[in-house]
């Protein structure tokens, strides 16, 4: 390339950029895509559904198109007592995560077990389905389509549920409200595990979107927060006004996620609550005003479910 010889320059530029993209996109994607799902990845996919950020089925991030995680203590068909089981209910029309619809997400062994033992190929989005996460004798995790293998129907499972966990819709709230701008979901591989628990491993993310690692940590990591603090009362107070339980917290209040009515159907008056709280903060009251219990269909309930479900 001589002085002002631009044709060769353009070729060199194109070649350099293509090389760069081959090494930084193509080669890593082969390695990353060849990793099998871990059990965590299966649970996450089934909990969070297809997509938690903006998508066609939930354009305003209201927590639509999401599965419901339920805890069962009895068989929904027979009513017999069983060991506590987590089932993932996809009501009719709910979109399945990529792992159920694409062959290359779960990893070879997991995919094989999920089809042969779990019959996931028989599940359909139109009819809805109930899934379980199981492990083979060889320690390979797989997804079981309980609607096909056990005849568990969506309505029966929801009726028999001991507890309903709206963690899927909660993750949508987590993204919409920008929780991940301060709370990461990535304990670091080098130092963090003493405080924040096990760093995620390579197969822990298959099928999850978005992963919302977060990068700018102004608050504790939340990947295992449900193991550190499993108190729903504490979480409820903390979301309503973090200063009630952590006087120095800089977290915003999320009291507006409670909506208009609390769990008992009483209207929520945030301004009145603030006035009473101000009295308390000034020292004119001994106790802060009572935090209303979030209604079962409120956004606060979903977000709290999501956080408590991060084990």
């Amino acid at each position: 390339m001589a002085f002002r010889e631009y044709k060769i320059g353009c070729w060199m530029f194109g070649i350099a950029l293509s090389f760069s993209m081959t090494v930084t996109i193509f080669l890593p994607s082969i390695d990353i895509s060849s990793m099998s799902s871990t059990k965590e990845a299966l649970e996450k996919q089934l909990t969070y559904g297809w997509e938690s950020g903006f998508n066609y089925y939930d354009p305003f991030l209201q927590g639509k198109d999401k599965p419901i995680k339920v805890i069962l203590n009895k068989d929904p068909m027979t009513g017999e007592a069983i060991d506590e089981t987590a089932a993932y209910v996809f009501p009719a029309g709910t979109h399945f995560p990529n792992g159920l619809t694409h062959d290359n997400i779960l990893g070879d062994d997991v995919q094989k077990a999920s089809v042969e033992l779990g019959k996931i190929d028989q599940a359909s989005e139109e009819a809805g389905a109930v899934f379980l996460v199981q492990t083979t004798e060889d320690d390979v995790p797989y997804i079981e389509n309980a609607t096909a293998t056990r005849g568990w129907q969506v309505d029966a499972v929801l009726n028999a549920a001991e507890q309903k966990i709206y963690a899927g819709a909660g993750k949508t709230m987590f993204i919409r409200e920008g929780c991940w701008w301060c709370h990461t979901l990535l304990p670091e591989q080098t130092q963090d595990w003493q405080t924040f628990g096990r760093p995620p491993l390579v197969g822990d993310f298959n099928g999850e979107s978005p992963t919302t690692f977060g990068s700018d940590r102004k608050a504790p990591d939340l990947l295992h927060v449900g193991s550190r603090n499993s108190s729903r009362e504490w979480m409820t107070m903390h979301f309503f006004n973090p200063r009630l339980v952590q006087p120095h917290s800089i977290m915003p209040r999320y009291d507006y996620l409670w909506g208009d009515k609390d769990a008992n159907g009483n209207p929520i008056d945030l301004e009145a609550w603030d006035r009473e709280y101000l009295e308390y903060a000034k020292g004119n009251r001994v106790y802060p005003p009572e935090v209303p219990e979030p209604a079962p269909d409120s956004e606060a309930r979903k977000l709290i479910d999501f956080v408590l479900n991060l084990k």
């Binding site: 990793m35 297809w50 298959n206 099928g207």
Partner: peptide, 29 residues
């Protein structure tokens, strides 16, 4: 030129619903 390329390739996870670590890595790419 690079901005246009990076914009179109960097948003592949959204155009094609890529998931998992691929999505996380492409976000930072």
């Amino acid at each position: 030129f690079m901005t246009v390329i990076v914009f179109l390739i960097g948003n592949l996870p959204e155009w094609f619903h890529l998931t998992g670590l691929n999505e996380a890595y492409m976000t930072w790419w």
